[in-house]
């Protein structure tokens, strides 16, 4: 079941891998969402709110645009 193509992509999988293979659950707990929401973001099935996007960037200590990219 595919959704309409999103213009937002992300590097969550790579960032988790580069941060000691952080699990989806660990990231979810740090960000304050469910693990399923992290999974949905990684699979481009959900575009998070600006607040959650910033929280994810803060966990990895990188600018927001290193986590999410917008393709017009």
């Amino acid at each position: 079941m595919g959704k309409a193509e999103s213009h937002i992509t992300n590097n969550l999988r790579a960032l988790r891998f580069n941060h000691g293979e952080m699990t989806q659950l660990e990231l979810a707990e740090k960000v304050g969402v469910t693990r399923q929401t992290i999974y949905a973001i990684e699979k481009n099935k959900y575009s998070p709110s600006l607040e959650v996007a910033f929280r994810i960037a803060m966990v990895f200590e990188v600018p927001l645009e290193e986590v999410f990219k917008f393709k017009a």
Binding site: L25, G32, V33, T34, R35, Q36, T37, A40, Y46, P48, S49, V52
Partner: peptide
């Protein structure tokens, strides 16, 4: 049991 059932923004 290891997950919080509280709804988040997506829920």
């Amino acid at each position: 049991r290891f997950q919080d059932p509280t709804p988040d923004e997506r829920d």
